[in-house]
């Protein structure tokens, strides 16, 4: 198969809460290869968020090794991790996190602003391209408060793609959307998957796992299930079957 994008080796993460030590992750190991669409499922308290923070280089494990695209993250400093996030990771959040009163294109340009090797002309071109690829080519100059939830999430996805990351990390990316829009976003994710993107989608919605290529289940800080999905459902089909709403 393809090359290893993510490799977790017995990751542990302890938090000190008062006098007690909380073990959020108790030895998590898995590898994710290029081009996989992985859903990470787990109830709240399962260590899902901590794992996501670790994968996103926002947090470093207490012990264990994490290699992102071949680079060991554990010993990296704050600034190095920021640069790594900038180049290798695309974040998509549940509540979009777009800048208020800011146009779609400016929102998408944001990651490139922190990459001094990208000039302003290239920045704009790449932002336009990314927005076109998520189907918002006609809404480049719309401000974030003039857009629907689905559109905002598309802008967020474009923002996550603009730096051409090694991995796209989505945190409940459909959590704030209605069913129909959720499926639209899922269609988009499946298309990105088909284009060869590596996607990690953290969710507590089991339905979404059916549309991904692999599902990792987390419970009490440990991996309790890791299943490759041989029967990936097509989100576009599901979308077509949804009753049409006339409102």
């Amino acid at each position: 198969m393809g090359k290893e994008v993510i490799r977790l080796d017995n990751i542990r993460r302890d938090f000190k809460v008062g006098d007690e030590i909380v073990h959020a992750l108790r030895g998590v190991s898995f590898t994710i290869e290029e081009g996989e669409f992985v859903t990470i499922m787990g109830t709240s308290g399962s260590g899902k968020s901590t794992l996501l923070n670790t994968l996103g280089c926002l947090d470093t494990p207490t012990s264990g090794e994490y290699y992102l695209d071949g680079v060991s993250v554990r010993t990296m400093g704050k600034n190095d991790r920021a640069v790594l996030r900038n180049r290798k990771i695309g974040f998509i959040f549940q509540n979009y996190n777009l800048l208020a009163k800011t146009t779609a294109i400016e929102n998408v340009e944001l990651p490139l602003l922190y990459n001094s090797s990208v000039g302003s002309k290239e920045r704009r071109e790449r932002a336009v391209e990314a927005l076109k690829s998520v189907g918002l080519g006609d809404r480049l100059l719309h401000k974030s408060n003039q857009m629907s939830g689905g559109q905002m999430q598309r802008v967020a996805i474009a923002r996550a793609l603009v730096n051409n990351p090694a991995v796209v990390l989505a945190d409940e990316a459909t959590g704030n959307l209605d069913t129909r829009t959720s499926f639209e976003i899922l269609v988009l994710f499946q298309r990105l998957h088909a284009e060869g993107r590596t996607i990690i989608f953290v969710t507590h919605n089991p339905e979404i796992a059916q549309y991904s290529s692999r599902n990792i289940t987390l419970r009490d800080g440990q991996v309790t299930g890791d299943v490759h999905n041989d029967n990936i459902l097509d989100a576009a089909e599901a979308l077509a079957k949804l009753p049409v709403q006339n409102d």
């Binding site: 704050k78 920021a82 996190n97 800048l99 922190y114």
Partner: peptide, 16 residues
């Protein structure tokens, strides 16, 4: 704060 968090997670360093 939220905006700062976002900027940081997409690669802004402390000094940015």
């Amino acid at each position: 704060t939220k905006e700062i968090g976002l900027r940081m997670s997409i690669g802004a360093r402390g000094r940015d």
